[in-house]
Design a protein around this nucleic acid. Structure first.
Lengths: 246, 246
DNA sequence: CGCCCCATTGAGACGGCTCAACTTGCGTGG
DNA sequence: CCACGCAAGTTGAGCCGTCTCAATGGGGCG
């Protein structure tokens, strides 16, 4: 581990790292910044110990303090309504930023849990707001990030409202594939970080329907499924399925 | 009309108005600002002629330039995917701000159309970004607005993913009711600005199901329906229906 | 080894969709 | 002024995709 450019264990047992050393710097926040500004950002970022699978980063109702960038692993966010009904609202992969939900009301609006051992960079929002005032490109970048979140949430509304089970699954798989590409990982082979339960909950389907759909796509050769291991064999056909209506 | 505090026709035939005179100032942007800052905001806001029912404010793909605050009337936003499938993504009432979808990619991601004769305040985003740099509370307010949009989109995902037809309709009616209250209008009597078609599209239902659901709620006395005129008779029971699962 | 959790698969039920007919309100034009 | 067409909404009957319920299989871990 010693000498690894992105993660050096420091004497406190915590992770020491800097944005400029991070291998995600080309797709995370630093992309908006020149070298001096990265340093300023670096100074406010807190990198804590990894969180374990199933451990919560924060819960709905807790006071909103920070945004988080995923550094490794994967994260799930979900709502719980008054009756205990849960809705998974998103999956977050390395380089992606979460926590915007809390800005509106000074307390978090959703729950955030690790799907596997993960590490995050915590950015205290009040200090971030000071920083964005003095770094216009950083302010612009945060507006853009939030704008993109809104756009993708709207796409999700279309998916939930208009597509059938195959279309929903295909849409999710291609989204994960694209986000893997951004990280220079294979767009065709991946290990799903989330359970069938999470997928079903996210897509508005039961776990049985998710399972049946995976089986059918597997049988037709469009994808190969082995538990959470997925290979996309026919990208084009999967893309066509995306547009299937219910 | 002359002397009306919020709208005076000026010599060019355009609407002259100021934020400090606006009767929406307690729920629109000025709420975040002190008197001097309101003036600065005022200077960048463009108030154009009203847009007619069915007229587009902007369309998907057009370059992103501005955010808009609804001053009167009502506005619908919708996506169109490659196959022409439409998804209504939101309804906007006076005092509400729209256009965040375009920030992420420098071109608008959705279409925006007036549901009735409406007027909006246009806020050029580049000038707004300059302004937010010098007015911290304004920057904070915009982060909050976008955070709230994200929160409400996530609630919508829960609605689309988990609720049955009655639950969806009830949720929409109560949302409109609450937003009417904010404007000091009756929470129980309203005229829907949108068609059954729009409601169905927004909620992921067919127009027939929307119609049948309205009829049923009417028959049970929970609401009274006469075309687009709605009276909520039993707020509590409507609220219970919100939590009905599919 | 045995337990438990997750996933798969089958059979039947049901909510919302499709298709179709009819009503109502409104604007147009004879 | 009424006839007509059109768009929006309502209502009914039958169908279909997904859910529910239930049984079974498999992998990880104590």
């Amino acid at each position: 581990m010693a000498g690894s450019p992105q993660q050096n264990a420091c004497s406190h047992g915590f992770i020491k790292a800097t944005c400029s050393d991070c291998n995600l710097k080309t797709l995370c926040l630093p992309i908006a910044l020149d070298i001096r500004d990265i340093d300023k950002l670096d100074k406010i970022i807190q990198r804590s110990r990894p969180i374990q699978s199933g451990e919560h980063l924060y819960r709905s109702g807790e006071p909103f303090k920070s945004l988080y960038a995923v550094r490794s692993g994967s994260i799930k966010t979900y709502l719980v309504d008054e009756d205990g009904v849960e809705q998974v609202t998103g999956f977050y992969l390395p380089g992606e930023v979460l926590g915007f939900d809390g800005i509106g009301s000074s307390e978090h609006g959703c729950n955030v849990v690790a799907l596997e051992t993960s590490s995050v960079c915590e950015m205290p929002f009040d200090r971030l707001e000071e920083l964005t005032l003095s770094i216009p490109t950083l302010q612009h970048h945060f507006f853009q990030l939030m704008g993109k979140q809104i756009e993708s949430d709207h796409q999700m509304m279309l998916t939930l409202s208009k597509k059938n089970a195959e279309g929903r699954i295909a849409t999710l798989l291609l989204s994960l594939s694209r986000r893997n590409s951004r990280r220079n990982l294979s767009p065709n082979a991946m290990r799903l970080p989330m359970s069938r339960m999470d997928i079903g909950n996210f897509l508005g389907l039961t776990i049985e329907t998710v399972s049946r759909t995976f089986s059918r796509l597997n049988k037709e050769g469009i994808i190969s499924v082995e538990g959470r291991e997925i290979v996309i064999n026919e990208h084009d056909r999967l893309n066509e399925l995306c547009h299937q209506l219910s």
